[in-house]
Nucleic acid binder design. Structure first.
Lengths: 247, 247
DNA sequence: AAGTGGTCTAGACCACGAA
DNA sequence: TCGTGGTCTAGACCACTTC
């Protein structure tokens, strides 16, 4: 998957700056222009493509943002050295995840409580003493088998409506994402062995390797929710799509 | 981390289109403009900021690319519903990884072979029968303790110089990344239990949960290398940075 | 000092799609 | 039909940086 093909999703007539971008990207990816190579100046490219400098600039700016070239004033633009391998990891909605596997999705609420946050939780969610949270435990099924165990805290100060929501039919994830507009999240991914509780809930044996994803979601500067998702390791994989990037 | 702050890395004087972008992003993230809200037309914004339409267009185009707004001809631009939670996951160079933890890094080659690819490997790397690969096993240390076990195949047809490279001092990852310009990669992340071999190599007990990352790297249409990295689960975490995105 | 990229303008034409 | 966004132009000024 190339940058040019991402930007123009199979359209019939790519715009001029997209064609320029694609041409240059092709030469870089093919090795014709190796790292360190100076690509033509904006003026030169504008002349080659018989277009204005702004059109060339648009293409080169996108290449620079993608990390394929580096732009230096007075010197020109250069093909960069690839450094780190970065990957765009998609963590999707669990329901969509299951259905994309062609299995039926089911949701079950195991426990629901409203209580004061303890010290550890207050620190993680950046709450004051006495703050109240909703504490949920639930399971997601793919077909008949448990697919994910979810432990979730919701900051009631951030989402007061959660107090009256039973969460017995609708999972907290989709419910929140409808209600809380645009959020930023931090993820942590680990491999763990299933403890007795997880083994019981996911119907696997104790010690089975599991993928554990912790996510903390912020909105407008305050933390809204803290969630831990545990997937049986052998039945779940995270697929990350490419992306060469510079560090 | 906001889009605007990413684009202007703490610079003193953000450009006008960055300021426009930041203003609009702020209203969306704060909830002032909820999903579905129509944001002002380009002409209106141009008038508000007393600038040309192109400047506004630059800001709105970036917001659209980031998925915060959706642009519909004849109707205007609208704040999108957040759908999937996507995350930008960084998979860094192992040496950088270790050193960022403040520990000394060490590398050890366990085995090196040059041989024909078997059927499974040929399929994964899209090779013809009889294709030759370099097969490596190595360990990466953080301090005195093994940190990562690496199994790697290199497609000799793609990187002939690998035949004469002993890989006893330099790890194949950095070596390849210097030599192979710009690549695309596919990742798969799983939790596994350490088998006898992994347990022995990583000096952990059998069955210990581990994070296993498979990566297949392509360059110019052909597969260059296939690598499996195994990290002890409790000592390694993948950190993914935010990123709200629409599906 | 000179040439580069960064930014911006005040126009323009077009395709598309909602009215 | 007609206004919107998508694209492009032919200029312009500026800051920066290397020469």
């Amino acid at each position: 998957m190339t940058l040019a093909s991402v930007l123009s999703r199979g359209d019939s007539a790519p715009s001029l700056h997209q064609r320029i971008l694609g041409d240059i990207e092709g030469r870089i990816l093919s090795g014709e222009w190796p790292p360190g190579h100076r690509i033509p100046f904006e003026m030169e490219l504008a002349a080659q493509y018989a277009c204005s400098r702004m059109t060339v600039n648009k293409a080169l700016s996108q290449l620079a943002k993608a990390g394929l070239i580096e732009r230096r004033k007075r010197s020109g633009s250069f093909v960069t050295q690839p450094h780190a391998q970065s990957a765009v990891l998609e963590i999707r909605d669990i329901k969509a995840e299951v259905q994309s596997l062609g299995m039926t999705y089911d949701y079950e609420l195991l426990a629901r409580a409203q209580r004061r946050a303890n010290a550890d939780e207050r620190e993680q969610l950046d709450l004051r003493a006495g703050s109240v949270v909703i504490d949920l435990q639930c399971r997601h099924f793919a077909g008949r088998r448990p697919f994910t165990y979810e432990e979730r805290l919701i900051n009631l100060a951030a989402v007061p409506e959660a107090a009256t929501q039973p969460f017995d039919k609708v999972a907290p994830g989709p419910w929140l994402i409808e209600r809380v507009p645009w959020s930023a999240a931090e993820h942590r991914i680990q491999a763990i062995g299933a403890d007795a509780e997880i083994a019981n809930v996911l119907e696997i044996s104790e010690g089975t390797p599991c993928l554990q994803i912790d996510r903390r979601t912020r909105m407008n500067g305050i933390y809204v929710t803290l969630v831990r998702l545990v997937y049986p390791g052998q039945t779940f994989e995270l697929i990350a799509n490419f992306a060469p990037m510079q560090s």
